[in-house]
Design a binder for these strands. Structure first.
Length: 462
RNA sequence: GGCGCGGUGGCAGAGUGGUUAUGCAGCGGACUGCAACUCCGUGUACGCCGGUUCGAUUCCGACCCGCGCCUCCA
């Protein structure tokens, strides 16, 4: 039985899908006007692990993650670049897919794009206008009337009167209430636009997610997720739009990832303190970045720092060292172990990946001990368990040598390294330890660490 | 100001009303030519003050501190 923390109720709840055995999940994806940063990676990886685990538990997961490919920021950026906005979005979508692939994020079941759902968006707005939840303003915009929805604020725990009183809300003449938000924005001269009953224009932010989620998953679905900064206003507004349009409960469980921080501040576009995924991947292997993200709970805030990434690298290396030189038994034939059960127990508690990783280390410890005691068959079984559990977190799926030796040596080729290792072996045989140590130091300077064993010497990157 | 989250050993990071994860770093030992790898051992950490309790880091209350949202942001 899986328990999930629901932002809506502010407590962990037993997860019961609407349709037994099937999970319908929608996660807010990117607005594609720039490269993904580590905060995006957090959401991508968190919901990837959640999807993998739910599937491991036997659920048929229908995972929808949208792409918002039309909005003001996109148009502004395209304008700055002097390009057609679709060129910008196409490029960013391709980059996003590359980043995801490198981080081992599986593709969602569906990846709808806002521009492909304009008709559905218009239909939903039409419904809202017809039912009195929205109104067309004189300037051609269509707004959602927030006071027409009694439950507005139920997700973010905000009171409408506080919002209206807030000084930071944009007060536009056309709005009836300052808290109202745009469903449809009238186009100015020369702007990208679509025809609608309210004139030429484009969708406002929020409505595209309401339209795409209900079209792909139905009026009510199981899980809706996203980043922490989407809770308000984006998700609050989605609830208002969807529940008013369909008359049904929107999403049962709301899940929000924690923020990534840099020097105690949230990593964000507006603060400019963000690191893009591709930037980080220049310095760290993708799996290390993934391990770093998975090693803390998805809801907690995590601090990005060089030291934390480096530590994640050392920790992951330890797991791969345990796997090195052990051919795992066929995963399918290895029966469930106490480690599998321990792993599931912690994962069932709101996807506690930090606890799950401690199980991985316990298995690695078993492997090391078993090999040490010459129990090779048991070690192979344990290795199979480690790879099996790792796959649920999207980790440990590489050949250990590939991980341990990737991008190492600088100008030294693998052949050069092997030659030096052989030279050192000869020196050691001749008990010329000064020469042997000199070679080892030379390799160490190049970032190569040597590991000796009875079977010979292996190397890895520092 | 309103709302929400959090303060765990040197660091990272889980968790629990009493047996006190895990990783990194450190220390001692084994292994090694010496190291690395690995194994064994080692550290009585739970912001502060009260309360409940036989017993609280874990429950309750106050306080201090940090962070997030309230405007675009994952």
């Amino acid at each position: 039985m899986i328990r999930i923390y629901n932002t809506l109720t502010q407590r962990k709840e037993e997860f019961q899908p609407i349709e037994p055995g099937k999970v319908r999940m929608y996660v807010c994806g990117m607005t594609v006007y720039d490269y993904c940063h580590l905060g995006h990676a957090r959401v991508l990886v968190s919901f990837d692990v959640i999807t993998r685990y739910l599937r491991h538990c036997g659920y048929d997961v229908h995972y929808v993650r949208n792409i918002t490919d039309i909005d003001d920021k996109i148009l502004r950026r395209a304008d700055e670049n002097g390009e057609v906005f679709t060129d910008l979005t196409d490029r960013m979508i391709e980059a996003m897919h590359e980043d995801e692939a490198r981080l081992g994020v599986l593709s969602p079941t569906e990846e709808p794009r806002a521009t492909a759902y304009i008709d559905e968006i218009i239909a939903m707005i039409h419904k809202l206008v017809a039912s009195g939840h929205a109104y067309a303003a004189d300037n051609g915009d269509v707004y959602f009337a927030v006071d027409s929805f009694d439950e507005y604020g139920k997700l973010s725990k905000k009171k409408l009167e506080d919002l209206v009183a807030g000084a930071r809300i944009d007060v536009r003449e056309a709005k009836r209430s300052p808290a109202d938000f745009a469903l449809w924005k009238a186009a100015s001269e020369g702007e990208v636009s679509w025809s609608s009953p309210w004139g030429e224009g484009r969708p406002g932010w929020h409505i595209e997610c309401s339209a795409m989620s209900t079209c792909c998953l139905g009026d009510t679905f199981d899980i809706h997720g996203g980043g922490p900064d989407l809770l308000f206003p984006h998700h609050e507004n989605e609830i208002a739009q969807s529940e008013c349009a369909t008359g049904q409960e929107f999403a049962r469980t709301w899940m929000h990832a924690g923020a990534i921080r840099v020097n105690k501040e949230k990593m964000s576009k507006s603060l400019g303190n963000f690191f893009t995924i591709r930037e980080i991947l220049e310095s760290y292997p993708a799996e290390v970045v993934r391990y770093f993200l998975v090693s803390s709970h998805y809801r907690s805030q995590v601090d990005y720092s060089e030291e934390n990434l480096a530590e994640a690298g050392r920790s992951l290396t330890k797991l791969y060292l345990a796997l090195r030189g052990v051919m795992p038994s066929k995963a399918g034939v290895v029966p469930e172990t106490e480690h599998d059960r321990g792993f599931m127990e912690v994962m069932n508690d709101d996807f506690n990946t930090a606890g799950a990783i401690s199980v991985l280390h316990a298995v690695a410890n078993d492997i090391n001990q078993q090999r040490r005691e010459g129990r090779e068959d048991e070690a192979k079984q344990s290795a199979a368990v480690l790879v099996r559990l790792g796959s649920i977190l999207g980790l440990l799926q590489q050949d250990p040598e590939a991980f341990l030796q990737a991008d190492a040596g600088g100008e030294l080729s693998a052949e050069d390294i092997d030659r030096l290792i052989q030279a050192r072996a000869d020196a050691r045989k001749n008990r010329d330890f000064a020469e042997a140590d000199r070679i080892r130091d030379e390799l160490a300077d190049k970032g190569i660490i040597l590991d000796d064993s009875r079977e010979g010497t292996t190397w890895r990157r520092a």
